[in-house]
């Protein structure tokens, strides 16, 4: 795992500041930005995928076992797009 930037010694910087670990920004949890949280009602969900497609955070994924969509609250910033765009009104924004 990458060290926080204020602990890295100059000797530890890859030549040219190259980052060799793809996608390691995922250790940064943007969920802390959230003031509102999407609440999902699987019974109303019509499984149209719109929430998944329109999520700028890629924070929504399908769970084929439970037949429900799942929110990753580590990253969900609470923008509310999923709730606003849901054609079945299966998602509601609530105070977090």
């Amino acid at each position: 795992m990458t060290k926080p930037m204020d602990q890295i010694l100059w000797q530890e910087i890859e030549p040219g500041g190259v980052i060799t670990e793809p996608g390691n920004a995922s250790c940064y949890h943007t969920g802390a930005w959230r003031s509102q949280k999407p609440e999902y009602n699987p019974n109303l969900c019509i499984k149209c995928w719109r929430c998944y497609i329109m999520c700028p955070e890629s924070a929504i994924s399908p769970n084929y076992d439970t037949n429900e969509f799942v929110w990753n609250y580590d990253y969900c910033k609470g923008c509310g797009i999923c709730a606003y765009e849901c054609p079945a009104k299966a998602i509601e924004m609530q105070e977090d």
Partner: peptide, 28 residues
């Protein structure tokens, strides 16, 4: 709604993400 309850895989829509979560774009 009951009938539609099974999540069907999206057609022609890759599931892989090439820009990872954890980016610092504004909300929305």
């Amino acid at each position: 709604t009951e009938k539609k309850k099974v999540i069907k895989p999206l057609k022609n829509f890759p599931m892989e993400e090439y820009i990872n979560s954890g980016h610092r774009a504004c909300q929305g």
